[in-house]
C-alpha cells in the first residue's frame, strides 16, 4: 500500500503545484521519490507531530494542498488536538496519512498498533476517513483525497499487501461502498487491510454451502448508510471486519444503520481487535489475528456459527 500511495502522490504532484508532503522523520524507502522530484515541496519536520500538523494547517490556510505522513498512531493520536482545531475546525486542506494501520506492525508491540485511530478520526468534523483494502484501492483513495478539498485521513497498512482487485478499482467514490462478490446468506463488510481476509472467508464459506457476499468499505466517513440499510433488509447476517477495536470503529457505525433499518431481521457479527489482548501479547500480525479470531478461518467459522444459531 505504501508503494501504491507514493507512486500516486508523485503522479498527482506533477500536475498539482500546490501539493506538499510533510513527514515526522519517517518514510525511509517510501518517500524518497517525492523528495527527489519536488524538493521544494517536501519537508521532514522532525520528530514533532504537533508542529507537523500545525505547519500543515498553516500551509493549507495559504492555499497549499498538504499531505502529512507518519506511523498511524503518531500521525493521529499524538497530535489529535491539532487535527481537531487547526485542520478540521478550519476545514483545512490537509490529509493525514497513517502507515501501519491496525496490527500491521505485529511483533513491534502495542505502541505501534493503530487500533483506535479510526474512532478518533471519524469523530471529527469535516474529515473524510479512508481505509483502502489493497494497493488498487490505495491508488484510488490517494487520488480522491488529493482532489477533495478539506481534511482527510488515509489509513494505510504496510508494504506488500496482496492485490485483491484484479485491476484498477472502478466504481468507488467517497461515501460509497463497493461490492466485490455477491452472496444471499451473509454480507461481509470489510474496511482497510481485512479485505483479503474477507475474500478468503467467503471462499471457505462457499465450500460449506454458505453464500457470502463481500463488500469493501474503504470510506468509513462519510459512510454509505443507504448501502448498509439495503444489505440489512436483504441478508440474515452482516459481518464487519476491521483491524480496529470495537469502540468507535466501522462495526459500531454499521450497527447503527442496521438497527435503524425498518423491519430488518439481520444480525450483526463484529470481527474486531480485542483491546485487552492487543495490549498484552507479542505476536505477528497473522498470529494476533488468529488469537483474536479475525483470521479467515475464524471469521468463516464464526459466520457459520452465527447463521446456525439464527436457524
Amino acid at each position: 500500500m505504501r508503494t501504491a500511495f507514493i507512486e500516486t502522490l508523485v503522479a498527482e504532484a506533477a500536475t498539482d503545484p500546490s501539493l506538499f508532503l510533510l513527514n515526522g522523520d519517517l518514510g525511509y524507502s517510501v518517500l524518497e521519490s517525492f523528495a527527489e522530484k519536488f524538493p521544494g515541496r517536501y519537508i521532514n519536520v522532525g520528530v514533532a507531530e504537533q508542529n507537523m500538523i500545525g505547519v500543515a494547517a498553516g500551509l493549507a490556510m495559504a492555499c497549499k494542498n498538504v499531505f502529512v505522513y507518519s506511523i498511524a498512531n503518531f500521525a493521529t493520536l499524538r497530535c489529535l488536538e491539532q487535527i481537531r482545531n487547526d485542520v478540521c475546525y478550519h476545514n483545512a486542506n490537509v490529509t493525514v496519512v497513517g502507515v501501519g494501520g491496525g496490527l500491521s506492525y505485529g511483533t513491534q508491540g502495542y505502541t505501534h498498533h493503530a487500533v483506535e485511530d479510526i474512532a478518533a478520526m471519524r469523530a471529527l468534523p469535516n474529515i473524510a476517513v479512508l481505509c483502502p483494502g489493497d494497493p488498487a484501492e490505495t491508488r484510488w483513495a490517494t487520488r480522491a483525497l488529493v482532489q477533495r478539498k478539506g481534511p482527510g485521513y488515509l489509513r494505510l497498512g504496510k508494504a506488500g499487501e496482496p492485490q485483491v482487485h484484479p485491476g484498477a478499482v472502478e466504481g468507488l467514490a467517497i461515501g460509497k461502498a463497493l461490492r466485490l462478490k455477491d452472496g444471499a446468506d451473509v454480507t461481509l463488510i470489510s474496511t482497510g487491510n481485512m479485505l483479503q481476509t474477507a475474500m478468503q472467508a467467503a471462499e471457505r464459506l462457499a465450500a460449506s454451502g454458505i453464500a457470502a457476499g463481500v463488500v469493501s468499505m474503504p470510506c468509513v466517513k462519510p459512510l454509505d448508510a443507504d448501502f448498509i440499510r439495503g444489505e440489512a433488509g436483504r441478508v440474515r447476517l452482516v459481518g464487519v471486519l476491521e483491524e480496529h477495536v470495537r469502540h468507535g470503529g466501522l462495526a459500531e457505525a454499521v450497527a447503527l444503520h442496521v438497527a435503524e433499518c425498518p423491519g430488518t431481521k439481520a444480525r450483526l457479527l463484529s470481527c474486531h481487535v480485542n483491546d485487552t489482548i492487543a495490549s498484552g501479547l507479542v505476536g505477528s500480525q497473522q498470529q494476533l489475528r488468529e488469537l483474536m479470531e479475525i483470521d479467515a478461518a475464524a471469521v468463516a467459522r464464526r459466520v457459520a456459527d452465527a447463521l446456525a444459531a439464527k436457524a
Binding site: 521544494g40 515541496r41 519537508i43 504537533q50 508542529n51 500538523i53 500545525g54 505547519v55 500543515a56 494547517a57 498553516g58 500551509l59 493549507a60 490556510m61 495559504a62 492555499c63 497549499k64 488536538e81 491539532q82 482545531n85 487547526d86 475546525y89 478550519h90
Partner: peptide
Amino acid sequence: VEASSGSLGHGLGLACGMALAGKVD
C-alpha cells in the same frame, strides 16, 4: 480572523506553516 484559537500552543506552528508558504511563493 485568520485562524481560531483557544487551546494554547497552536499559534506558532500555524504561523510557521503560513510563513513557509509565503517564503516558497
